Amino acid sequence: MGRADDTASVVSRPRQHALLVRLSSARALARHYHDEHGLGLMEAGAHRSASGRGEVEAQAGQVITVNPGEIHDGRPVGETGRRWSMVYFDADFLARIWSEISPAARAFEFLRPVDEDAASARRVRRLLSRLVVDGEEALAVEELAPALLAGLGLEKTPPPGRGAPAGIRRSKALIEADPTRALGLAELAAEAGLSRFETVRAFARAFGMTPYAYLIERRLLAARRLIVAGEPLAGAATAAGFADQSHMHRLFVRRYGFTPGALARA
């Protein structure tokens, strides 16, 4: 399976609760993150990923997870590529379900980036099947999600970067305030109270990526929200701060493995 055989589809988003993405690729995905909790299954081949929970490897038949804001990438193991499916759950939707399971909890995360439990794999496979067959019915998600979450184990966690120096957090906030604005490293360094070189190193150490990579991530997330809301691709690219639609397209595929057009058609 080479790059010529890469396939990607965004299957459904039932009532805005869950986005199902199915990928078959030998492509290496660049470091990125999601606003949602991701839960899926490695269906064929194997996949190695650097994540906030260390280097992990998922084999066919194993459950894979990712938490909101968790920096990760993805590389095939060997030369045959891999095939996997992921469901990205809206954070508020999952929080509501988890509050019914554990009323005292306010925040949570998936504990294991790769889960070998056969029962969990069966539940995830059932969820994926329901989303394909009953893509418009949110009940398919709602009735299966509680057992999945309870079985995979979640816990309260501090937000990423809590221990970062105050100056670096200010630099991050400057990017977040307006990701479409052209920011210079000197401006971020002044906000952090460090040299430009020190700012890049401290930012990457605290948040898992450089200031420029983080700026691109914020623009991509903005573009995703605009596309899901129905904004035409060219308009979404401009509004999110990209030079043009092709620039957004290239970065989108490099990080997510599917095109902005696939998301727009979902």
Rank of each mutant, 00 (worst) to 15 (best):
M1C: 12
A4D: 15
A8V: 04
A8C: 07
Q16T: 07
L20N: 00
R22W: 06
H34E: 06
G38M: 02
L41Y: 03
L41Q: 03
A46W: 06
S51H: 13
Q59F: 09
G61P: 14
G61M: 07
D73E: 09
V77L: 13
R83T: 11
W84L: 10
W84V: 12
M86Y: 02
M86R: 01
A95W: 00
A95L: 12
E100M: 15
E100N: 14
A105L: 12
A107D: 15
A107R: 14
E109S: 12
L111W: 06
R112L: 10
A119G: 11
S120A: 15
R126Q: 14
G135F: 04
G135E: 01
E136W: 11
E137F: 12
L148K: 00
G151A: 12
L154S: 05
E155Y: 14
T157R: 14
P165M: 01
A166N: 07
I168H: 02
S171E: 02
A173P: 07
P179G: 06
T180W: 07
L183N: 04
L188H: 05
E191F: 03
G193P: 02
R196L: 09
F197R: 12
T199E: 06
R201G: 04
T210Q: 08
E217M: 10
L220F: 01
L221M: 08
L221P: 11
R224W: 01
R224G: 06
L226G: 02
L226W: 01
G241P: 09
S246L: 14
M248V: 05
F252I: 13
R255D: 09
R255S: 07
Y256H: 09
